[in-house]
Deep mutational scan, measured.
Amino acid sequence: MQAFVKTLTGKTITLEVEPSDTIENVKAKIQDKEGIPPDQQRLIFAGKQLEDGRTLSDYNIQKESTLHLVLR
């Protein structure tokens, strides 16, 4: 499924993900596309910070959801 990641600069990245993907996995995909190390990434969805060990389905993130990427 497709999900979108919006950065603070307003850029939107499109990712191909599965509901079973972990947040860690998603961060690795963002690193592949953008070169941002996962340890600098914080992903926010519905106002919550997403934890590495959880999956997209844990957070009820469905296709075409938009996550927000904040860098630390």
Rank of each mutant, 00 (worst) to 15 (best):
I61L: 07
E16N: 12
T55V: 07
S57H: 10
P38F: 13
K33Q: 11
G53S: 11
V17A: 03
E24A: 15
L71M: 09
F4Q: 05
L43S: 00
Q40H: 12
H68T: 12
K11C: 08
T14W: 08
Q62V: 14
V17N: 01
K11M: 10
V5N: 01
G47I: 02
Y59T: 01
D52L: 05
D32T: 11
K29G: 02
Q41P: 01
T66W: 09
A46C: 10
K6H: 13
G47F: 05
K63M: 10
G10E: 03
S20Y: 11
I44W: 15
Q31V: 04
D21M: 12
M1I: 10
G10F: 04
K63D: 15
N25G: 09
I30L: 07
I61S: 03
M1D: 03
K27G: 01
L15Y: 02
L71W: 09
G35R: 06
E24K: 13
F4L: 07
I30A: 01
T9W: 15
K33E: 07
G47A: 04
Q40D: 09
T7Q: 06
G10Y: 04
K29P: 00
A46M: 14
T12H: 06
I30P: 00
D32K: 13
P38Q: 13
T12E: 05
G35I: 02
I44C: 12
L67V: 07
P19R: 07
L69I: 07
K27S: 01
T9A: 12
I61Y: 04
L69M: 08
L69Y: 01
L8W: 15
D52W: 03
K63F: 08
K27V: 02
F45P: 00
L43A: 00
I36T: 07
L43N: 00
I61M: 06
V5Y: 02
V5R: 01
I61P: 03
P19W: 09
Q31D: 05
A3M: 15
I36S: 04
T66H: 15
E16P: 04
F4T: 07
I23N: 01
L8C: 14
D52F: 04
M1P: 02
D58I: 03
R54D: 05
Y59C: 02
D39L: 09
G10S: 04
T14I: 14
T55N: 05
S20R: 09
E51Y: 08
V17Y: 04
G47C: 07
K27Y: 04
Q2C: 09
E16D: 11
D52C: 05
E16L: 14
A28G: 09
E64C: 11
Q41W: 06
Q62P: 12
Q49W: 15
R42G: 06
E51N: 07
I61N: 02
G47R: 04
T14Y: 09
P37L: 07
Q49L: 15
I36H: 09
D32S: 12
K27A: 02
S20A: 09
I30F: 02
R42W: 11
T12K: 07
R72E: 13
L50Y: 01
G35Q: 06
G47W: 05
I13E: 01
V26H: 00
N25D: 12
P37W: 06
A3D: 01
H68Y: 15
I23G: 02
L56S: 00
R54Q: 09
V70Y: 14
L56H: 00
L71V: 12
A3L: 15
A28Q: 13
H68E: 10
N25C: 11
E51I: 09
T55W: 03
P19Q: 07
K33H: 10
K48L: 13
Q41N: 02
K63S: 15
S20G: 12
K29N: 03
E51H: 09
S65W: 06
V70N: 05
D52S: 06
L71T: 10
V5I: 13
I44D: 04
K6I: 14
F4W: 06
Y59L: 05
T22P: 05
G10P: 02
K6L: 12
K27W: 03
T9F: 13
L56E: 00
M1L: 08
I36G: 02
V70S: 08
F4P: 02
M1W: 12
S57R: 13
Q62F: 11
K11W: 09
D32H: 11
P19G: 08
K6D: 04
L56M: 05
P37G: 05
L69W: 01
I13R: 01
F45E: 01
Q2Y: 14
E34R: 05
L8Q: 14
N60S: 08
E24H: 11
E18Y: 15
L15G: 01
D58N: 05
D21S: 07
I44M: 13
L50Q: 01
D39S: 13
Q41E: 01
S57W: 09
D32R: 13
I13N: 01
M1C: 04
T22M: 07
Q2L: 15
R72A: 13
L69A: 01
S57F: 10
L15I: 14
H68F: 14
L43K: 00
K29V: 04
T9V: 07
R54L: 11
G47P: 01
Q49N: 11
T22L: 11
T14V: 14
N60I: 06
P19L: 11
R42L: 15
Y59G: 01
E18P: 03
G35D: 05
I61F: 10
I61W: 06
N60D: 10
D32P: 02
K27F: 03
E34Y: 08
R42Y: 13
D21R: 02
R42M: 15
L56I: 08
L67D: 01
P38K: 15
N60Q: 09
V17I: 07
Q49Y: 14
I44G: 03
P38N: 07
D52K: 04
N25H: 12
K63T: 14
K48D: 06
G47E: 05
T66I: 14
I44K: 05
D39Y: 13
I23V: 10
T7C: 10
I36L: 06
I61E: 02
I36P: 04
Q49R: 10
R54K: 14
I44N: 05
F45S: 03
K6N: 06
V26E: 00
Q2G: 05
T22D: 03
F4E: 04
E24L: 15
S57P: 02
H68P: 02
Q40K: 12
R54M: 13
R72P: 11
H68Q: 10
E18V: 13
A28R: 15
S20T: 13
S65L: 08
P37S: 09
L50P: 01
T7E: 03
M1F: 15
P38G: 08
K27H: 02
E51F: 07
E51R: 09
P37M: 07
E51G: 04
V5E: 01
A3N: 03
T14M: 12
H68C: 12
Q40S: 09
D58K: 03
Q31M: 13
Q40E: 11
L67N: 01
S20M: 11
K11P: 04
I61H: 03
G47Y: 05
Q2N: 10
Q2E: 07
N60W: 05
G47L: 04
H68R: 08
A46V: 06
G35F: 04
L8T: 13
T9N: 13
L43M: 03
K27N: 00
E16W: 15
L50V: 04
T66L: 10
S65Y: 08
D58R: 02
K27D: 00
R42E: 12
V70D: 06
F4V: 08
R42D: 09
L71F: 08
E34T: 15
K33G: 04
E24C: 08
G10V: 02
V70L: 14
Q62W: 10
L69F: 05
V5F: 05
A3E: 02
T22H: 04
T55H: 06
N60H: 09
L69R: 00
E64K: 08
Q41I: 12
D39A: 13
